[in-house]
Structure formats: structure tokens, C-alpha cells
Simulated assay, not measured.
Amino acid sequence: MGLLTYGAVAAGAGVAVVSAPVVLGAIGFTSAGIAAGSYAASMMSTAAIANGGGVAAGSVVAVLQSAGMAGLSTAATGAVAGVGATVGGLLAALI
């Protein structure tokens, strides 16, 4: 791998980790809970209807709300960084 690729991988990882909390907040998964009228509220409504009135523990909505309230766990940070690094590497390969 060339220097450009290493830089793109590092940049992709960094941007993904830094932007994840911003994106979560923007779609409605906030530290105060799910924002009314947001995309997150729509997701929660759909999940609750599908599960007979409640949001299942461990579901996508539950995990995203947890991350929105408490931040990303170490494992989630690693996963987000890995995805960002992969995207950065793929973009460098295309250039």
C-alpha cells in the first residue's frame, strides 16, 4: 500500500469515529432520548409496532439509542473505525 492509501485509511477511520455521534444526534438519537418527530422516532414506532408495543432489547433502535445517550462503546468505536478505514481504503484504490 502506498502512503496515500495509508492516509486515506487513517482519515476514513478518524472521520467515521468523530462523525458517528453527530450523525446519531442529527437523526434523533440524543443524550436526552429520542427526539420527537425525528427519523429515530419513526424507527422506534416501527420497531414497537413490530414487537407488540415495545422495543426489543438488543434491537437496532435500542443499540442506537444507547449509543446516542452514552456514546459509543469501545467495541462500537472499533467497528465504526473499521468501516471508515475500509471506505477510506476503497476510495484511495479508486483514485
Results as ranks from 00 to 15, higher is better:
Met1Asn: 04
Gly2Trp: 00
Leu3Ser: 03
Leu3Tyr: 07
Tyr6Arg: 15
Ala8Asp: 00
Ala10Cys: 02
Ala10Tyr: 04
Ala10Trp: 02
Ala10Ser: 06
Ala11Asn: 12
Ala11Tyr: 13
Ala13Arg: 07
Gly14Thr: 06
Ala16Trp: 01
Val17Asn: 14
Val17Arg: 13
Val18Trp: 07
Val18Leu: 05
Ser19Met: 13
Ala20Trp: 00
Ala20Arg: 10
Pro21His: 02
Val22Thr: 04
Val22His: 04
Val23Pro: 04
Leu24Tyr: 00
Leu24Gly: 06
Gly25Trp: 05
Ala26His: 08
Ala26Asn: 02
Ile27Pro: 11
Gly28Glu: 12
Phe29Arg: 00
Phe29Ile: 07
Phe29Pro: 08
Thr30Trp: 09
Ser31Thr: 11
Ala32Trp: 10
Ala32Cys: 09
Ile34Gly: 05
Ala35Asp: 07
Ala35Lys: 09
Ala35Phe: 03
Ala35Ser: 14
Ala36Ile: 09
Ala36Met: 03
Gly37Trp: 01
Ser38Ala: 11
Ser38Val: 11
Ser38Asn: 10
Tyr39Thr: 13
Tyr39Asn: 12
Ala40Met: 09
Ala41His: 04
Ser42Phe: 01
Ser42Asn: 12
Met43Leu: 14
Met43Cys: 06
Thr46Asn: 08
Thr46Gln: 12
Thr46Lys: 11
Ala47Asp: 09
Ala50Ile: 07
Ala50Phe: 06
Asn51Ala: 12
Asn51Lys: 00
Asn51Asp: 15
Gly52His: 05
Gly52Glu: 11
Gly52Asp: 13
Gly53Thr: 10
Gly53Cys: 03
Gly53Ser: 07
Gly54Arg: 03
Ala56Glu: 15
Ala57Cys: 00
Ala57Thr: 11
Ala57Phe: 11
Gly58Cys: 10
Val61Gly: 04
Ala62Gly: 08
Val63Met: 10
Leu64Tyr: 05
Leu64Pro: 04
Gln65Leu: 14
Gln65Val: 11
Gln65Asn: 11
Ser66Gly: 12
Gly68Ser: 07
Met69Arg: 15
Met69Val: 15
Gly71Asn: 05
Leu72Lys: 12
Ser73Phe: 07
Ser73Ala: 06
Thr74Val: 15
Thr74Gln: 15
Thr74Glu: 15
Ala76Gln: 04
Thr77Pro: 15
Ala79Ile: 13
Ala79Pro: 04
Ala79Asp: 13
Ala81Cys: 05
Ala81Ile: 00
Ala81Asp: 06
Gly82Lys: 01
Gly82Val: 02
Val83Asp: 10
Val83Gln: 13
Val83Ala: 14
Ala85Gln: 00
Val87Tyr: 01
Leu90Gly: 08
Leu91Glu: 12
Ala92His: 10
Ala93Leu: 11
Ala93Cys: 09
Leu94Val: 06
Leu94Gly: 13
Ile95Lys: 14
